[in-house]
Nucleic acid binder design. Structure first.
Lengths: 325, 325
DNA sequence: TTGAAAGCGATACCAT
DNA sequence: ATGGTATCGCTTTCAA
């Protein structure tokens, strides 16, 4: 059995209170006593039990993070940004993936019992679930998800980058645009669409239910028989990559005949030469970690909503002129 | 303040022992009493404290996982496979990324204090650190890392797939091979090289220090001025992708003039049409989770070493004949 | 500076 | 079927 604080106290001939003080070098302990305790602790290979400590301090010293998935760089990077700051702050990170889980809401509530606060990415759990957490007094920060009343949130900017992206297309002479996606499903997409509309007068909306490659590849068929627009502005990269592949397979000149843009800058976007918008993924995670820490230590009580700037990444799917890696 | 088990006991007019029984529906409790307790618990919105419970049960009900990174699908998938099984087993998952951390060993030791067992991926921590954990009685499973004496390990098969990959090249008429990588840095690479050598008599070794895209692109230069082999067998996909890009840029016919293969099947490999070897990443994670659970619950004490089969993925970087998605 | 003792919030053994 | 009570291993007053 492992040594406990009492074993060390006995070995060193002091009280457990003193051992505790030494182990956390909190209050002042006379050097002689301190060394005596340290020696005893070393001799017994004493390592304080986190369980005992946590109960006494009534804190987990751990943060949670809930995400849909880790495939693709998006959430993975956010998680890493979060973890690195959490580690700096001396807190462990608990993860919960909701992919393929039907009891996501219950799982999140359970997770909340095992940490001092958590970050929720995207549309992983219902708004009611988030509100229940908040009502229960849990420390919560939302990331990449529309703010829910009174809860902290961190998001990437959409509108301004959508405007920049659109202006980029107009500058290249592409005026007839088609926005591919469904603004009603996500506030992010809605903002992107709004941004595009603010700059372009000639933008048509093509609704698609699933924002994945299959959907992208599929909808190209409609346009091959009809007339192609000057550019497809897709709600995300998956969609754009699907379209790109299908268009190229059909022998359509890109970016000559039609230009294609995505959103997110997933790794494959680079290989496919897709012009897109990159989000500050690590910063989303680290910012969330800091906001959460403020809530946990009680520095702040008024909710905050941070919006982080994004970056337009120009590649060959829109212009051969200024290609970037 | 939140209600404790004592509040509920008082409210329901029973002992805390009975409340505990009801909350965990462990032993039999008379229905009438049970309902009374349930009502009281509901009225007080009582949720058992995990901290109290964990100390009493002397277990964290959490597993750890240590990985170098989450960029790229490899570790991310392993983590997901691990998390899903851990969740099934009712355990939370703590993560620790060693990327950009100089105190990895210390961090891992600390993490071991906060969970009932942990999985270590790749070369994240030193062998001494692993041995220290084992000596301390921690439950440890290694993944994608050569086994350390007496510690469980799960790895992907290398040799046989390397043989299959090589045979595939020979079948296509590619006899003069160059293996790119450094077998001395990693047992995985060493096994892959050995597998290649067992099938091909004409394989040259090209040492590179970094197994990344830059290195791959860079070393192509050497061959453009000299003679190209029939095929480059790269130690991993990054390397292969770097070479592929550079070769194509130089106008070299692939797979006609030279074939290129990688290892890992990262997402970009698919877009680049790279023939490679896919590892069962999720299975690595889930297998590790099960092995770890056996250690934790004490079902097993003799160390095990699992080797999971891999899969050859043939794409256009070796043959246009049987292209796969 | 140090120690005694009271929690922290559960679980679990032993009676009843 | 229940209750009383002793842990679990630490932190933290409060005195001395």
């Amino acid at each position: 059995m492992r040594a406990t604080i009492r074993d060390v106290a006995r070995e060193a001939g002091v009280s457990i209170a003193t051992v505790s003080r030494v182990m956390r070098d909190s209050e002042a302990v006379r050097p002689a006593t301190r060394d005596k305790v340290r020696a005893a602790a070393a001799a017994l290979e004493f390592v304080p039990s986190q369980l005992g400590r946590q109960l006494a301090e009534r804190r987990h010293a751990a943060n949670g993070i809930v995400f849909p998935d880790l495939s693709g760089p998006y959430y993975a990077e956010v998680v890493l940004g979060y973890e690195s700051v959490a580690a700096e702050l001396g807190r462990s990170v608990l993860i919960l993936s909701t992919r393929g889980r039907d009891d996501a809401d219950a799982a999140v509530q359970a997770m909340a019992e095992r940490c001092d606060g958590l970050v929720i990415l995207g549309r992983t759990v219902s708004d009611e679930s988030v509100e229940r957490l908040a009502a229960r007094g849990a420390n919560v920060v939302l990331v990449a998800r529309p703010p829910v009343g009174g809860v902290d949130a961190v998001n990437a900017e959409n509108r301004i980058s959508a405007q920049a992206l659109t202006q980029h297309l107009l500058d290249l002479g592409a005026h007839r645009l088609v926005f591919v996606g469904d603004p009603s499903t996500s506030p992010d997409v809605a903002e992107r669409f709004a941004g595009v509309q603010e700059v372009s007068h000639d933008v048509e909306l093509h609704h698609v239910d699933d924002l994945d490659e299959t959907a992208g590849a599929h909808l190209v068929g409609d346009y091959l028989t009809r007339a192609l627009p000057d550019a497809f502005v897709c709600a995300n990269d998956e969609l754009a990559l699907g379209m790109l592949g299908r268009l190229r397979a059909a022998g359509v000149d890109i970016p000559g005949r039609v230009k294609v843009t995505g959103w997110d800058d997933v790794m494959a976007a680079r290989y496919a030469g897709l012009t897109t918008v990159r989000q500050p993924m690590r910063a989303l995670g680290s910012t969330a970690a800091r906001l959460l820490d403020e809530l946990i230590v009680g520095t702040r009580s008024t909710p905050r909503h941070e919006v982080l700037p994004t970056q337009l990444v120009i590649r060959t799917s829109t212009t051969l002129g200024k290609e970037h890696a």
